[in-house]
Amino acid sequence: MKLNRLFAVMRKEIIHIKRDKVSLVISFIMPLTMLLLFGYAVATEVDHIPMAVLDLSNSHESREYIQAFQNSLYFNPDVYVENVGELNRLLDEGKVRAGLIIPPDFSHYKEKVVKPFLKIDGSDPTTARTALSSGIMVSQSFSNSLLKEEMSSKGMKIPSFGVDLASVVEYNPELNTQVFTIPGLLGLVMQNITIILTAFALVREKERGTIEQLVVTPITSAELMIGKLLPYVFIGYADFLMVLGLSTFWFKVPVKGNIYALLLLGLDFIICALAIGILISTVVQNQTQAMQGAFFILLPTVILSGFIFPREQMPEIVRAIGDIFPLTYFLVILRGIVIKGVDVSLLFHQIIIITAMSLLLLFAAIARFKKRLD
């Protein structure tokens, strides 16, 4: 082996690396960003579960009971509602993961057995299991303290009073993990495929030298971007129908809500994801950079969108970063329609954001391409 030839090859490769500044920057930024984001976002323990409270007793005793849930650190009983309908709506929207209903006669727990009721959102089995076991534990601890007090004052007679917490798991009573993961996988797979498809759309033209031919034609930037996008819309939507059918018939995860709304909103999300790929394609110079850019978007969404880990457990700044990804909102739509069967009106916020993102990303791609033509 000749060292001079070896160093010549090394020098040539260093020159290539210096010229490919985008790849060089990504190679340093990506591991740092991933470590920081995943280090804060990946949390296996579940605590501070958002809880709504319907306190029909409104007594000193009921407030002590609520405080016991607060003190456990497993629950955040910060939302108070006036009726069961409002509590159910918050569960449907995913704004709370548990709902505690305290009966009107709760203040008489020293005279008889009272039965508060805990409703749990079972669409995320990990959070639901923690809520179920923790809720029973908190209630039993609260009741046991009463029993000890009474038994110490009246001998060893077992009193016929106390708090007997009843519970029910909504949407996914069996706590089947597959019911939670399959709709999430549907969104994740579609995002990954569609972004990668269009991330290479303009790059191929640049590498083949055909981009100059497009520049000299009367085609406008908008016509070029939309023309590039539309064929992939059909491909992406065909993939969506195929994966949805596989989820329903093979994995036995039925769509409980409006299937037509899901089909329409799936199209909206596909356009949004394709627009991300198109925007990446206008920024990068070659297919290697396109792949790096695509993965720079795709990897954080696995962790930050709520696909695996509950977003409620993430720090606010990390949760805010997850808010910029369309998949975060589409997962709420998927799980809302597929698992919970909620009305589309409850998903209006997510629909508006995905639609707005689609338009914004497409306009950004058009503007970016115009700038590169100047």
Rank of each mutant, 00 (worst) to 15 (best):
L334T: 06
F363K: 07
D239K: 09
D105F: 08
I196C: 01
R19G: 14
E170S: 09
V283M: 11
R335H: 04
Y65E: 08
F307Y: 14
K157E: 13
L246D: 04
D92Y: 10
A68D: 03
I303H: 04
I280H: 09
I226H: 09
V302F: 12
A199G: 01
N71Q: 13
I158E: 11
H16N: 13
S134C: 06
H60Y: 05
P326G: 04
A201S: 14
T177N: 10
E111R: 15
L274M: 05
A166M: 08
T210Y: 01
M156H: 12
K157I: 07
M357V: 00
L100P: 01
K110H: 15
H60D: 00
G257S: 09
H108A: 15
G277H: 09
N71Y: 04
V81A: 10
F296N: 01
V253D: 05
I352A: 04
L146E: 09
E312C: 00
I354W: 00
N76G: 02
S107D: 14
M34K: 03
N172L: 04
L347F: 07
T194S: 14
Q67D: 11
Q70P: 00
V216I: 13
F348Y: 14
N83A: 05
A128K: 12
D268H: 02
G322Y: 10
S139V: 08
V9N: 04
I280D: 02
L359M: 07
T282E: 07
